[in-house]
């Protein structure tokens, strides 16, 4: 399939789930999705279109918590970025980690750093933070404040 056929195919199959399509450049397309749709759209792009999963990135934006899933279709030289926006008070999204092995760790990282709940994740443990890190404190949220009284934040000069 060509680039246009792929985009039209996705629009035909998942028209209800796709909120907006932004063609940034010939190599890069952003696609806004409803959060619950990521389970089947992501799996379709990975399994049927043969895309490679690069990484997922999370950001705490003023509108809410945003996750970008970066998929690459190498034959077409096309990068598909699936964008979902989650509610800051209750960020819940279905997990892709049970169907795509490579998503497993990045979802664990997003879970501990941004406090996103991945529904149905096969192994929801912490990945990077130490065991004595308090529950409910997410360091990459905008409203993060220092919790550790023993921390030293001066250079001593």
């Amino acid at each position: 399939m060509t680039r246009d056929q792929v985009l039209r195919d996705l629009q035909n199959r998942f028209g209800d789930d796709i909120l907006d399509v932004f063609q940034k450049s010939p190599k890069r397309v952003y696609m806004g999705l409803k959060p619950r749709a990521i389970a089947w759209v992501g799996e379709y792009i990975f399994r049927e279109l043969g895309a490679r999963f690069n990484i997922a990135t999370g950001t705490d934006t003023p509108e809410g918590i945003e996750i970008l899933y970066h998929f690459t279709l190498e034959d077409l030289n096309l990068m598909l970025n699936l964008r979902v926006l989650l509610d800051r008070e209750n960020p819940v999204i279905p997990s892709l980690g049970k169907s795509i092995e490579a998503v497993n760790w990045i979802e664990r990282e997003l879970m501990e750093l941004l406090g996103i709940t991945f529904d149905g994740h096969p192994d929801p443990r912490r990945l990077l933070l130490p065991d004595n890190w308090p529950d409910g404190v997410f360091p990459l949220r905008q409203d993060y404040t220092e919790w550790d009284d023993t921390a030293i934040r001066t250079r001593g000069v």
Partner: peptide, 18 residues
């Protein structure tokens, strides 16, 4: 020595000599 630009990082609480 001083944790460089990571001095305010949530993950670097104390310098090495502590």
């Amino acid at each position: 020595g001083s944790r460089g630009l990571f001095i305010d990082s949530y993950n670097c609480p104390v310098p090495l000599d502590h």
